[in-house]
Design a protein around this nucleic acid. Sequence first.
RNA 1: GGUGGCAUAGCUCAGCUGGAUAGAGCACCUGCCUUCUAAGCAGGCGGUCCUAGGUUCGAAUCCUAGUGCCAUCACCA
Length: 595
Amino acid sequence: MSIQAVLESKVKEAVFSIFNTELPSVEFQPTRKDFEGDITVVVFPMLRVLKGNPVQIGNQIGEYLVNELAEVTSFNVIKGFLNLVISESFYLNFFHTIKDQTDFGFVADSDPGAVMVEYSSPNTNKPLHLGHIRNNLLGYSVSEILKAAGKKVYKTQIINDRGIHICKSMLAWQKFGKGETPENTGLKGDKLVGNYYVAFDKAYKAEIAKLVESGVDKEVAEKEAPLLLEAQQMLLKWEAGDEEIVTLWKTMNSWVYDGFEQTYKDLGVDFDNLYYESNTYLLGKDFVAEGLKNEVFFKKDDGSVWIDLTDEGLDEKIVLRSDGTAVYMTQDIGTAIQRVKDYPDVKGMVYTVGNEQDYHFKVLFLILKKLGFSWSKNLHHLSYGMVDLPSGKMKSREGTVVDADDLMEEMTATAAKISEELGKLEDYSDSEKHGLYKMIGLGALKYYILKVDPKKRILFNPEESVDFQGNTGPFIQYTYARIQSILRKASTTNVNLSMALDHALELHPKEKELIKQIQIFPDTIQLAAENFSPALIANYTYDLVKEFNSFYQQVSILGETDEQKKVLRIQLSKKVSEVIESAFKLLGIEVPERM
RNA sequence: GGUGGCAUAGCUCAGCUGGAUAGAGCACCUGCCUUCUAAGCAGGCGGUCCUAGGUUCGAAUCCUAGUGCCAUCACCA
């Protein structure tokens, strides 16, 4: 039982015994640093059921707790705050019970239901950029957090491999490509295809300009430019299964997949299965037909099918075009249902998609609910803010994107530069160094992105490099490396780490603080899972690390002459490093032995 | 215009279901490497928590109205 649970029932008991009143709940908070104490009971809320002076009430409860609980050694009351000092032996005992738990903070797979987390969802006409990086890091991290909180997770991705966008790249390649391939150009496949997407846009814009010059209205020109018409023709051919088009489509998509695979690998994310839009875009029509029968949907005179969500404060939304073809909503309905068919243990889904699609998902979830799927109540849109540049939105067609591969490379280069200047790794081989630089560079990038609340937008300035000091990934990695250094040294001495420690051992205040911080790791994981927020893990880890560095500065570990204290400090350091490693694993960040 | 999100130090961000004097990092200033890694530690400077009302013993947090930025409201995806 946690100390808080013990305190809660004792405080209730105290109030009942002193005032003969039932207390519905007790409010706790960590004691502020400037006061003596570890846990604070807030007396004010009790005034609703108890009449009296908060200071007096606090004192009476404090007396009671000190007398009744060995864990509470003393107390003080300031205004309406009852500050309790918890005994050192309590923290010491707690530490002993968890110090050898390798999975401390993680809950074993306890829930029979699984959750499917979708992230990435790229289009196959261009390379991944910084926006995808945020999406990928969030989706991956939330998946790991959910697993740590005891859920079974399937990581998935829907690849938007069909549609007008890829036809544009295909058409441009046919017209201007001169047989270029990744092999004969040495270009990464996704980059090559992306170049043709840009080439299409350029040629298309030129056509529009020409048409406008010859007197055509701009809007008409945009719709009737020959290149666009040709791309639309190509899409129709693709849908009809035209062999030449399908072959070209397969070829160019395979180039892109090779490129994506490389990027995902560098980024350190993975998937348990993949869905392709070319397989799912026809799904959903059956369910629309069924929903029409059940009057979830209604048909307009022109034959189009809609759902009326005005009762929910939303609008009417189309689910099938008048020509009977699907819209995005149609296939999203179908795909969701298909996923549960494919994985019958799936009881919920998380969609990692930017907040520009908030409305879409609100509607999707409502439709699935109205269609009567039990799992529809466990659908969550992990909606995140856009990553913007100082110049505004990133636009692929205009070339104002921060490319994912380039960015990772730059981060690695920055890490290398800083590391070389510090010169602590002279004895590392070049490949060892490079591996480390990548680990640090990516650590900086991932932490930078994940420490921000997902729903907030991120302003990314490519001119200003991501920090490597302060509240950053490298700072935390550095602390981990420092601890490893101590542990290496300790292992060469004859210190007995498994030595039994005296339960009455005196704790240094910094040691107590560290144990307190370690203690809340499990709760932090649960909270992060409930909120789908890696930022909570990141900020927790930073607090832990800051506390450790302060401890490290003030207290000698290996230099301690008292053997008992020395062992405790080494064990404590070791545990801190394990928690750092676990927490960073949840963020998809690796930790180094040295740096 | 309707709907949703966001607004906290010069900059980037924390602030859990309302609680004590609103916290970090960067930047700037001052100390600390002959002792376990200075990517560190200790300290200083810096605030109209967007504005105005309201609820409450108590509001950055909840409610109302307004302002600003972003998104969305297509037989686009």
